[in-house]
Design a protein around this nucleic acid. Sequence first.
DNA 1: TCGTATT
Length: 459
Amino acid sequence: MAAAPGGSAPPAGPGPRLGFSTADSGVGMSGLNPGPAVPMKDHDAIKLFVGQIPRGLDEQDLKPLFEEFGRIYELTVLKDRLTGLHKGCAFLTYCARDSALKAQSALHEQKTLPGMNRPIQVKPAASEGRGEDRKLFVGMLGKQQGEEDVRRLFQPFGHIEECTVLRSPDGTSKGCAFVKFGSQGEAQAAIQSLHGSRTMAGASSSLVVKLADTDRERALRRMQQMAGQLGAFHPAPLPLGACGAYTTAILQHQAALLAAAQGPGLGPVAAVAAQMQHVAAFSLVAAPLLPAAASSPPGGGPGSLPGLPAPIGVNGFGPLTPQTNGQPGSDTLYNNGLSPYPAAYPSAYAPVSTAFPQQSSALPQQQREGPEGCNLFIYHLPQEFGDAELIQTFLPFGAVVSAKVFVDRATNQSKCFGFVSFDNPTSAQTAIQAMNGFQIGMKRLKVQLKRPKDANRPY
DNA sequence: TCGTATT
């Protein structure tokens, strides 16, 4: 019964909509009549992704905003499948393709919903095929073929929105082009008929007609190229320098942790030991660089390291012989990412969660904000830092509620910034003191309080 | 360079 309230206007039914197919259908009467109980959608309708939605808004709240642009076929707020938590985004399909286009141009990056820092996102969902399903890459053209020739070739298949021959700086054709059709069907027809169908004058092989790369594919391709280049360089001396820098950072990191913890407890060492998982391989190679690194205090950052015990430096680079407590079996420190903290730290640094020492590790980590003053913005993170490393880095300063490194969706590469939230402001301040300015390679971490939500905004 | 979320 939760579905479609019969009869009268008020749809008030707070029914557990599974996506709230906006069967708004104006008139109440649900299924029985042959009427349009469920609105039809165009065959070429576009499913839109809507991002930057305040977590407090559900489908009912959003509906009015989007209905301005046409009848909604379906609107679904994304929720975490386990927790049911609002993920801050939604899928939206209009009955008419045109409505989607209008909504996108009117709303995308144009309007910021209450409580959000950034403007709403309204764009074709990633699942919408390739997003650029109307755009073709054409290869194996003759060098002498220009836009007009290419147009003539593709004209029979539909409306050409765009036609570009790729050229070198000197103007000569690269023998390929992009052709964008008005619809996916037209593009597909062209592929069917033209791909491999003939060999153009001066081309070495038959005509290539395929969908153009998506952004993601382009990004991946670039990444592969870069990886290839790195591979080629690998035997060269360059990497050692890089390792040295990174090693330096880790060493300084140790110092920072030590200083912050204000004590020789095994906590910091344990945390660093965990870090070492990631650099053990480098460490061996870079070992000779260590003493220098150890003797130079991290400028601007955590300040001096009064008594950085020599054993620590040495210890760090004998990855399998941590000296934390002299126990031979202490390599267990390496395998339980988050656990060392509660037991090992002085109470001042182990605020709350001591009662459940081992539990923090497995939580789904839905990103959350802590209270005001507890949320840090961190910039200049090492490229290789992920959420886990971020947690490790800040765990020594208190209970980390969440840690998130931003990642480029297309490449999966870190954007080198992220957030860490503690459950109390003191931990956040301690972390800032210890880690802001902390040098890694040529860069220094920037660690500061996250901007409050309403900053940057008139009212 | 300020919470990124794609069923």
